[in-house]
Amino acid sequence: MTSLSAPYTVEFPFDRTVGPKVGTFLAGLREARLFGVRAPGGRVLCPAVEFDPETAEETGELVELAGEGTVVSWTWVSTREGDPLPHDFAWALVAIDGTDGSFFHAVDVGGDPGRMSTGMRVRVRWREVRVGEIGDIGCFEPVPV
């Protein structure tokens, strides 16, 4: 006896409240400004978080950053509908200059994985229309040499 089966779709149209540090970080993105947040011991974390993942202490002041960094790891993927780029690209962890840890986002090298390497220098490419969300950074792109 075979079973009946049918397709269906579930949607969750959530709005999610953010904390003061995350809210300021995202508002900064809307203004094409990148901020980190001060953690105990003088470390700077980007993206900004409310609590330091190492000590669980509340984080401190926001620190404006230049928006450049170094790729510390990357993976090459095929583009899908709704992705930040219309051609294949890398997801990467970028160590933003002046921060500890790394930042997850896309890197655009024009669809050529041969141009990706660990250690490469990249910078933020802002989207033209920004609304205060992580996608306001369209992607990172190589810093011209």
């Binding site: 995202l26 993206p47 993927v77 997801w91 962890l93 992580i134």
Partner: peptide, 23 residues
């Protein structure tokens, strides 16, 4: 806030982990 809105491919974080291990 910072990851889900980017809709990373399901294997993306593992890919980063594997590359870091290779490097």
């Amino acid at each position: 806030y910072y990851l889900a809105p980017l809709r990373p491919h399901r294997h993306a974080l593992a890919g980063l982990q594997a590359r870091a291990l290779l490097d």
